[in-house]
Structures are given as C-alpha cells and as structure tokens.
C-alpha cells in the first residue's frame, strides 16, 4: 500500500548557465540583459533623436543638408583623420543594435519557455482572451514593432544610404535622394508606417528603460511616463513631417531659389574652377 508515487512538480524552465567572469556574467541573466537592452536602447534613442533633428535641415534647403552631412564626416577632424569619428559612431550604433536585437530575441525566447501557451510574439495566451489592465498597445507590440523597425532600417539604408532601390540615387546628394524617394507615395507610406512603429517602440522602450536601469527617484517617478510619451511624440512628429512634407510639396526641388543639390554644388565648384 505504501508505495511512493512520484509527485509531479514544477521544473525550472532553464538550465542555469555556468557563471562567466565579470562583466560577461551580467549578460547571462535576464535582468542583466534587460540592462544591456536599456543601455543600447538609450544609445539608439540618442541616434534617433539626433538623426531627426539633423534631418530638419531638409527644411533649410539642399546646400544646408549637404553641409550638415559634410560636418558629420568632419567630426573630430582636428584630432583624428576625417570620417574616423563618424565610423566610430557607426560601429557603436551597429554594436548597440546587435546587442539590442540579440537581448530582445533571447529574452523573448525565455518568456516563451515560461509560458505554457504562447502566441507568435511569445506573449501568454489564455483560452478566454486576457483582459489587460495596464499593458498597453505599445508594450504588447514591442515584439512586433521591433522587427518592423529592423526591417525598416535596412530599407532606409538601402534606399537612402546605399541607393540600391533607385537608379536616380546620387551619392552625396541627400536632399535630392529624399525628394525622389519620398516623392513616391508607396515609399512615403512605408516611412509613415515604420515611423509610427518606431514611436510606439520608443514610447514603451523609454519608460521601460527607467525600470530596467533601476532609475527610480521619487522626484521623477511621476514623470517617467510623460518623458517617454513626450520623446516618442516629438520623434513621431519630426519624422513623419518629412514624407508628408515631400508629398505636400513643401520639400521639393522647385522650392529652391538657386539650383538644388549636387547640381548646384557642381555648378558652384565649376565657377570656382573657372575663376
């Protein structure tokens, strides 16, 4: 009678990894990974904000945009060779992007294991749909907006940095490239949709960053959501304005009083040469 029946019990959902030396062990834990995600997110957020502000030069005109682009290449030129600083920043951004994506991917995988039934984005699914009380659209769609932003990034690079998508693309003439690209209504819609996703991602990401970094100060606690919302809103307005302005004809070669973009530059150089 007294046979012992094994009692089924909860098992760990992971095998605990062997501790790596500091600081690598930080990345072995989910909390550490969230910290890495927050720090890399902060770097990327800084980029997005700077990028958006820099792009406002579009409203000044092609020469100013070109000047701005040249300034970026000239960063730190008094100390190190030209474009090195820019490449340094690019490498930092690529690194931040890689760890941001990897931590997000691996943490989602961890949650998928912890959930008995999960959907494609690894969120848990109850048989009756869960009635969320606090989780908002932005927080629940992080694992959708993230990949959308990733795809958008490649599209954006291919479109305006590498010029793979258009025969009219001209190296060194960002203003014209933007006007040509976003002048296409399809492309403009892609930009609009992607930037909405980006803003949603930033709205939750910025708030989440405060939590993950453990920035918790009674003086700012009540403002964390507002800071996140404000940031996301500014970025959204700024970034959406470009495709809309192009579509509305506010940014257009016709608006230029002088010859625009690289043609103007070449002309200018030609004049100099003539002298």
């Amino acid at each position: 009678m007294a046979q012992t029946m094994p009692r089924p019990g909860p098992n760990p959902v992971r095998k605990r990894p062997k501790q790596l030396p500091f600081p690598l062990n930080v990345y072995q834990s989910a909390v550490g990974r969230k910290w890495v995600m927050a720090v890399s997110g902060l770097v990327l957020l800084g980029f997005v904000v700077t990028h958006m502000i820099g792009n406002l030069h579009l409203y000044e005109g092609p020469l100013e945009v070109r000047e701005y682009a040249e300034t970026l290449r000239d960063l730190g030129v008094h100390v190190i060779p030209r474009t090195w600083m820019l490449w340094g920043i690019r490498i930092l951004l690529i690194a931040a992007f890689v760890v941001h994506v990897h931590s997000a991917y691996s943490l989602a995988a961890m949650s998928r294991k912890a959930n008995p039934s999960s959907s494609l984005d690894s969120n848990k699914r109850y048989a009756s749909s869960q009635d969320y009380a606090a989780a908002n659209y932005a927080s629940r769609t992080m694992r959708w907006t993230g990949p959308i932003v990733l795809l958008y990034l490649f599209f954006h690079l291919a479109d305006l940095t590498w010029g793979w998508l258009s025969d009219d693309w001209t190296r060194g003439d960002p203003y014209n490239n933007v006007v040509i690209s976003m002048g296409n209504i399809g492309v403009a819609i892609i930009y609009i949709v992607a930037n909405v996703a980006l803003a949603l991602h930033i709205y939750h990401g910025a708030w989440s960053m405060f939590q993950s970094l453990g920035v918790n100060n009674p003086k700012i606690n009540n403002y964390r959501r507002h800071i996140a919302g404000g940031l996301a809103g500014l970025i959204l307005i700024g970034n959406l304005s470009f495709p809309i302005a192009v579509q509305a004809g506010l940014i257009d070669q016709d608006n230029c009083e002088a010859p625009c973009g690289i043609t103007a530059e070449l002309e200018h150089e030609g004049e100099e040469a003539a002298q």
Binding site: P12, L107, A135
Partner: peptide, 21 residues
Amino acid sequence: MVETMEDYFGSCTNHGECHEA
C-alpha cells in the same frame, strides 16, 4: 533570488500587469 527566479519564470518587459493584478 533573482537568478532562482530566472530559473522558473519569464523576463519582465515592464507591462505593469502584475501591479494591476
């Protein structure tokens, strides 16, 4: 305690559902 928690549970994405529940 954090590492034991991670043996069993998923990763926090700061939804805030826990506090509401």
